[in-house]
Design a protein around this nucleic acid. Structure first.
Length: 196
DNA sequence: GAATCGATGGTCT
DNA sequence: GACCATCGATTCT
């Protein structure tokens, strides 16, 4: 199974978001593979996107969004949760795709342990949940997802048909009318691992 | 089920 | 000092 290349990410962000569905996110942890199939993502595109962290321009936190494609942008939200993005398009233009949900595939027991051992909580249905399940924190902020020795990377999955893809406005976006209505969330229709 | 709320800390004005 | 690209528990209908 091949890995997604930098060229995959160096495209229009909405195209990358759509085609991330069905791909495999892999985390190497202590020699074990923890992985899941991507079932839900959101696109954040440019400084004109009022919902993007890049809206105020370049800062220390959002710097990876301005960097080369194929790198990670990981941030802390609400003082306790991490969220993972893949940087897209060209260096200098701030854009990224937020990974919102996975369907667990490999290392499920280890994910459960990382999720505090509870059997009744969703493993990877939510941007912060999947980061906890895959032990992703700000140590991965700016990491190259295309490096040969990367501990976090993406692999080609089974292609997803257009009929299986649904779109909606992004979750948790408020305030700006255009940002609230843009259908930049992509998810697999009828997949039970999609968040909410 | 749906609505509401507290936790908790980095980032930016 | 306000604001979060959230989650899990609690409190309703």
């Amino acid at each position: 199974m091949g890995r997604l290349t930098r060229q995959f990410f160096a495209r229009d962000t909405l195209v990358v978001a759509r085609h991330l569905l069905g791909q495999r996110l892999v985390r190497m942890l202590d020699g074990d593979r923890l992985s899941g199939r991507i079932v839900e993502v959101e696109a954040y595109v440019g400084e004109d996107d009022q919902a993007s962290h890049a809206r105020p321009g370049r800062t220390e936190r959002n710097a990876p969004m301005y960097g080369p494609p194929g790198h990670a942008y990981v941030y802390l939200i609400y003082g306790m949760h991490h969220c993972l993005n893949t940087v897209t398009e060209r260096e200098g233009f701030p854009a990224a795709v937020l990974i919102r949900a996975l369907q667990p595939v490999e290392g499920i027991e280890r994910m459960r342990e990382l999720r505090s051992g509870r059997a009744d909580l969703p493993l990877t249905s939510g941007p912060a949940r999947l980061c906890q399940a895959l032990a992703i924190d700000r140590a991965f902020d700016g990491a190259d997802l295309c490096a040969p020795d990367a501990l976090l990377f993406l692999e080609e999955g089974v292609p997803v048909a257009d009929e299986a893809v649904a779109q909606s406005p992004r979750i948790g976006v408020r305030g700006d009318e255009r940002a609230m209505t843009a259908a930049w969330r992509f998810y697999l229709r009828d997949n039970r691992h999609v968040s909410r």
